[in-house]
């Protein structure tokens, strides 16, 4: 069964307080050299063959991501 990966990230201009909190924790733990962290969501879908990528994009745009604040990338894994 084909697998599809969707990554959803906040748009660059939207503040990500969770990423900032993780960055703060890293520096307290002594992990240096990290300048920025953005936290996002990762979805793994198993879909019917043949893959309809346009329909999958519609799915991601309708539910998985909120286009007001987020953007997504979609990858169909090679079998």
């Amino acid at each position: 069964m084909p697998r599809v990966l969707v990554d959803v990230m906040l748009k660059p201009e939207i503040l990500d307080p969770q990423g900032s909190a993780i960055l703060g924790a890293l520096s307290r733990l002594g992990f240096t050299g990290v300048h920025s962290i953005r936290q996002g969501k990762h979805f793994e879908l198993e879909v019917s063959d043949p893959v309809d990528e346009a329909r999958l994009r519609e799915l991601a745009d309708t539910l998985l991501a909120n286009s007001v604040i987020e953007e997504f990338t979609l990858r169909v894994l090679p079998r």
Binding site: L10, N66, V68, I69
Partner: peptide, 10 residues
């Protein structure tokens, strides 16, 4: 319009 996101201070 717009969206509601995580409070800035968490």
């Amino acid at each position: 319009p717009g969206a509601l996101t995580r409070n800035v201070h968490l």
